[in-house]
Amino acid sequence: MIFKNFNMTDDEVMEIIYTYDNLLNKYSKINGKIDEDLKQEIKLEIYKTLTKNRERQKNLKNFL
């Protein structure tokens, strides 16, 4: 897992997403126009990736 910080809050994740808004816009363009659905999809995917280890980390702590 490249993203090492497993304890990112929702705000932190959203901050990253807003920081890289230009990047998201670049990848959301279809025929020169920003496709909002596609942008949403990318945001969701990034959110999922950045938060998916939260639960795992929590379970691991409980287990130990």
Binding site: I2, F3, N5, M8, E12, E15, I16, Y20, L23, L24, Y27, S28, I30, D35, D37, L38, E41, I42, E45, I46, T49
Partner: peptide, 25 residues
């Protein structure tokens, strides 16, 4: 604020690119 390393930035780009590809498909 959490600062992304170069590898993490690259991973972010990969996620965006894959999502785009899936969406287009």
């Amino acid at each position: 604020m959490y600062i992304l390393s170069n590898k993490e930035k690259a991973a972010l780009i990969t996620i965006a690119r894959r999502s785009r590809y899936d969406y287009l498909r």
